[in-house]
Write a protein that binds this DNA or RNA. Structure first.
Length: 138
DNA sequence: GCCAACGTTGGC
DNA sequence: GCCAACGTTGGC
């Protein structure tokens, strides 16, 4: 099963908002980057990912799960961009800060570090385990 | 608030 | 199809 990381500015859509959306989840729309879009197309229902707060917070705060596969975004007239539907699974006991990620040799190669602007990223199994460990599990 | 990195746009 | 210019993102 593949793992992913989703970035969101907490002022726009925070972890608390995601939790409040409940088990039905929310359509992760608004992505207008082809690479991020392709990552979401590759996702399968049940794939888990990290929820990352950018700008204000700069930390991995929780785990989300894909509940519906990629579907076109009705707001994109060209029909090229779309999104998956995500629900909150559980918060990390301790948020894993970007500064900690950068100094952990197991995480230094993360896309989050190498290409910080990509809004939907793949996460390797080793990185997944390392962050869960730092976060005290979920 | 600044600026680097990256993606996209548009002229040629 | 190349590449310069521009806009946006996001860390600091």
């Amino acid at each position: 099963m593949a793992h992913w990381l989703y970035k969101s500015e907490p002022g726009v859509w925070s972890w608390d908002d995601q939790v409040a959306a409940g088990p039905a989840g929310t359509f992760w729309d608004g992505v207008r980057n082809h690479l991020a879009n392709n990552h979401m197309k590759a996702m399968q229902v049940g794939d888990r990912g990290f929820f990352y707060h950018s700008n204000d917070g700069k930390a991995v705060v929780g785990v989300v799960e894909v509940v519906k596969p990629w579907a076109p975004d009705p707001k994109d007239e060209a029909g090229k961009f779309g999104a998956v539907t995500l629900k909150a699974v559980a918060p990390l006991k301790v948020p894993v800060e970007l500064s900690a990620i950068k100094t952990d040799p197991r995480l230094a190669e993360m896309v989050l570090v190498k290409n910080s602007r990509l809004s939907v990223q793949p996460v390797t199994d080793a990185e997944w385990d390392a962050i869960l460990e730092r976060g005290g599990g979920s």
